[in-house]
């Protein structure tokens, strides 16, 4: 039986230095409940250590979490990478870490990189600066993700920095992303008008939340799926077996158009 599920697949936690310290697991889950979100993507920069804590807390509220990271490729392009389970996320996370420059974080400049458990006890701090490019190309990161059965999504492609279209101009031939994420500032129609290279692609929108108030977006991505899993999301993006994805306005729950 298929049902509609409101998703936000791009949320940062206190592990991301640029996220506010209010982005702890409890507060994120509470904000997801308040915004009616049933499927949450936890995507810290080049890291995943807070995914288990958010997953455990979200489960108590009936919210599913996709296990992910926001990787910064060699081209300084941000991409969301989701994995079928925590074990495959951890394995990919280790590979990403091996390709991350050994530069120490300076919390007074970039912010703290805090690792927490489901009770919000501080387990430690990530000492390596996460706001950096890994020494892997866009295609390398895609292949690494797909080899692990994961989903690869170029992030906020309309943004002027750290985005596929700002840095590389157009969707590279052969990249064949299953979807691309646009920022919540644009409707899909506006995005395709501004960036004709997006025409013909499936698009999703997410909050890219770095603070709690960011989770309240003008539009949201809804998946019509049998279960809140990565496999179902992949089917929906392909429009297969009755699954589908739409971007809807949060104010009137009509299709989000300009």
């Amino acid at each position: 039986m298929l049902r509609w599920l409101k998703a936000d697949l791009h949320v940062h936690t206190v592990l991301s230095p640029c996220a506010e310290l209010e982005m702890g697991p409890r507060a994120i889950v509470a904000a997801a409940v308040a915004n009616g979100i049933g499927l949450l993507g936890i995507t810290d920069h080049n890291a995943w250590a807070n995914v288990p804590a958010v997953t455990a807390l979200a489960a108590r509220e009936g919210i599913a979490v996709l296990a992910g990271m926001e990787v910064q490729t060699r081209e300084e392009v941000h991409v969301l990478c989701f994995f079928p389970d925590l074990a495959s996320l951890a394995a990919a996370g280790e590979e990403i870490r091996r390709h991350l420059p050994r530069i120490e974080n300076r919390p007074e400049v970039f912010g703290d990189q805090v690792i927490v458990d489901a009770e919000e006890n501080i387990l430690g701090f990530e000492n390596r600066l996460l706001l950096n490019s890994v020494d892997l190309s866009l295609e390398d990161v895609r292949d690494l993700t797909r080899r692990a059965g994961g989903l690869f999504i170029p992030a906020h492609v309309d943004r002027p920095a750290f985005s596929l279209l700002a840095n590389l101009g157009v969707v590279p031939p052969g990249l064949e992303p299953q979807t691309l994420e646009i920022s919540s500032r644009l409707t899909p129609e506006e995005a395709k008008r501004l960036f004709p290279t997006l025409v013909g692609y499936s698009l999703i929108t997410s909050s890219d939340a770095h603070r709690l108030s960011d989770l309240a977006t003008p539009c949201a991505t809804w998946f019509h799926v049998a279960a809140p899993t990565l496999a179902e999301v992949v089917l929906a993006l392909a429009g297969r077996e009755g699954r589908k994805v739409v971007i809807m306005s949060n104010s009137d729950e009509k299709p989000c158009s300009s």
């Binding site: 060699r74 081209e75 590389l168 101009g169 157009v170 590279p172």
Partner: peptide
């Protein structure tokens, strides 16, 4: 310093 294949298209 950008070495991605898209530089050729540009």
């Amino acid at each position: 310093v950008q070495a991605h294949q898209n530089i050729v298209a540009v």
